[in-house]
């Protein structure tokens, strides 16, 4: 099977609010596929449809070759879920959390213990097995939730903002584990609002905004398709810039993007634009020249900055 997930024109309304407005995408076996977007863009609604907390009211969602209105247990048995919020059993120890969760998949206590110990090893949590969950740091809890999602040897793991709220070190550790999982052939589907996370992990991603998919591709493809290669960040209040500044940039072949009070300039030849900034009345020490990134694609397509 090439595609693990095929979504065709998914739509969802909550009362008058239209959370999804015709979302189509497909996820290939073995890839890491990302959903990038603001809170409220429709990422979590799509994830909930996939893991069976939300019904498919419009469109068709095909998982492992089958379409259902609500994802049934037989399909959930092939899936692992890392939800946005840690929902560990706080009364239980680290090891007991995994064993107990294994029971929901029909594993015997012995099978669950063997698998749990493998996963604690894999996630670097072996020395925490007897600890109470409450005593774990945010990063360790996250790793435990990921370990829990792997109890059933899933073919697909759905991760809803796996590193939100983690410090950089903990985030890098989680990323490493996710890369290792992918190397084992597990398909990963993740949502994030961190551009760096999307760039680091995703083979392909979609950019979501207000219930729509605005763009799809690999991170480098998306940058290449939507942005000139160079970006200049102007770190001055918009009101303090010369009135004709934007016109000058445009006349010189650059693109101007204003996001809230920040200004971004894009150009094929960024150096040329950079050299003229002082002459146009914008001091270069208040600007920053860099290569265009996924973040710029996001800014341009959504017309808003990332949170």
């Amino acid at each position: 099977m090439d595609n693990v997930i095929i979504a065709e024109s998914l739509g969802k309304c909550f009362g008058a609010f239209r959370a999804l407005n015709g979302v189509s995408f497909s996820v290939r076996a073995g890839e890491c596929f990302g959903f990038l977007g603001h809170n409220g863009a429709g990422k979590s609604t799509t994830m909930k449809m996939i893991y069976g907390l939300s019904t498919v009211d419009e469109g068709i969602l095909t998982l492992f070759g089958q379409s259902h209105r609500l994802t049934p247990p037989a399909i959930k048995a092939q899936m692992g879920v890392v939800p946005q919020e840690d929902n560990l059993d706080t009364e239980l120890t680290v090891l007991e959390n995994l064993e107990t969760y294994g029971g929901l998949f029909g594993l015997s206590r012995r099978e669950a213990r063997v698998r749990a110990q493998e996963l604690l090893d894999f996630m670097g949590l072996s020395n925490k097995a007897a600890d109470n969950v409450e005593s774990l740091s945010g990063g360790l809890k996250r790793r435990l939730v990921i370990a829990r999602s792997l109890m059933n040897h899933p073919q697909l793991v759905v991760l809803d903002e796996p590193t939100t709220g983690l410090d950089p070190q903990a985030r890098h550790l989680v990323w490493q584990k996710l890369r290792a999982l992918k190397a084992e052939g597990v398909t990963l589907l993740l949502t994030t609002h961190y551009m760096e996370e999307a760039s680091q992990l995703c083979d392909r991603l979609v950019l979501m905004h207000e219930g729509l998919i605005l763009a799809e591709g690999s991170p480098p493809e998306l940058v290449k398709k939507h942005m000139p290669p160079c970006a200049i960040e102007v770190r001055l209040p918009f009101d303090s810039l010369p009135q004709d500044f934007a016109d000058k940039v445009t006349a010189a072949g650059g693109e101007v993007l204003r996001v809230a009070d920040a200004l971004f300039l894009y150009a094929v030849d960024g150096k040329k634009l950079w050299d003229q900034l002082d002459a146009w009345g914008v001091p270069r020490h208040a600007c920053f020249l860099r290569a265009a990134t996924l973040e710029d694609v996001f800014l341009k397509l959504t017309g808003r900055g990332p949170e």
Binding site: P73, G80, P83, N87, L88, D89, Y101, L104, F105
Partner: peptide
């Protein structure tokens, strides 16, 4: 505790 969500992610 969001236990319902974790249980419902399993095949139940």
């Amino acid at each position: 505790e969001k236990t319902f969500h974790s249980m419902l992610a399993a095949p139940v």
